[in-house]
Amino acid sequence: MKKTTLFAALVAMFAFASCSSDSNQHQADATEEHDHEHHDGMAHGDNLPAAGTVVVETPTFDSVAEPMKTNLSQLLDEYIALKDAMVESDAETAKEAATTILNSANAMPVATLQVPEQKSFAEEQVEKVRTSAAAIAATNDLGEQRNQLEDLSEAVFSLTKAFGATDKKVYYQHCPMVNNNQGAYWVSTNSEIRNPYFGSSMLKCGSNEEVIN
């Protein structure tokens, strides 16, 4: 489902080099690393991708009946609370946030959707939310929680984008060093990079890859 443009790939390569530098600096001196990461983050992480850059392809549903749109907006807010808990390396708060997301997913009014394409898309993505949130809520292990974040992030971003579920700007952000340098994405409503996979160890490692709204 993901389609990374050449531009996004080049940005990711640059982010990888900068993040690797940040990691080495962290090992040398924690205080100097903080300043270095902040500088590097402003140099590459907080810049925006070119207009029209697409990482996650979704359909566009122009007309969606309530309460679906409202519930999806709430889901995004709940996801941000979970992501922020992981930025803070707070496994207990992340677990609680995941439980809230799971409850919202279980209560998502997909049945109110009358258009078959909308309903089938929502069912697929909400099930991904449900599966990932349940896995995060089932453990106090921060590493295991973070392993589930990318699938949850893609599903939340896809739903938000397809249904136009918020008036906020939403950023799809990427760190190339996650998962043994395979990389991973997350969602934010702030362009400034705050990495939920590494927390304070590499807080500014990442880049904005797609923006909606």
Rank of each mutant, 00 (worst) to 15 (best):
T93M: 14
I136T: 02
A81N: 14
I80F: 09
T100M: 09
Q125I: 04
M86C: 13
N106K: 06
E154T: 13
L75Q: 07
A165S: 15
R146K: 15
T99P: 08
E92Y: 08
Q145K: 04
I136F: 01
P59Y: 02
S132V: 03
F163H: 06
D84N: 15
S104I: 01
P67T: 08
S132R: 03
Y79P: 08
D141C: 07
Q125R: 06
A162M: 04
M108A: 03
T58W: 05
T131A: 09
S63K: 15
L113N: 07
A122G: 02
D77H: 11
A50N: 14
L102Q: 12
P116I: 05
S73A: 14
S104F: 00
V156I: 14
L48I: 13
E144I: 04
V64P: 00
G164A: 13
V126S: 04
G52S: 12
P67N: 11
T100F: 00
L159C: 06
L152G: 07
M68P: 06
S73Y: 03
A94N: 06
K168M: 09
A105H: 02
V115A: 14
S120D: 13
T112H: 03
Q125P: 04
T112I: 09
D167R: 13
L75K: 01
E144M: 07
S73H: 12
T131G: 05
L152P: 10
D84H: 11
E96P: 00
N47C: 12
E88P: 01
D167Y: 07
P109I: 01
D141M: 03
K119F: 00
S158V: 01
A155I: 10
E150R: 06
P109L: 04
S104C: 01
V156M: 04
M86L: 15
S63N: 15
M108V: 00
G143M: 13
K83P: 07
D151T: 14
L113Y: 03
K168L: 09
G164N: 15
T60D: 15
T99E: 14
S120T: 12
V87S: 07
G143I: 10
E123N: 12
E144T: 11
A98T: 12
K69Q: 13
A105K: 03
R146L: 13
T100P: 08
A51N: 15
D90R: 06
T99A: 14
R146D: 12
S120Y: 03
S89D: 15
K69H: 07
S73V: 02
L72D: 05
E66Y: 03
S120C: 03
A91S: 15
M86Q: 13
A138N: 10
T70V: 12
T166C: 08
K128H: 08
N147R: 09
N47T: 15
K128M: 07
T160P: 10
V54N: 05
T58R: 09
E117V: 04
S89Q: 12
E127L: 05
M68S: 11
D141I: 09
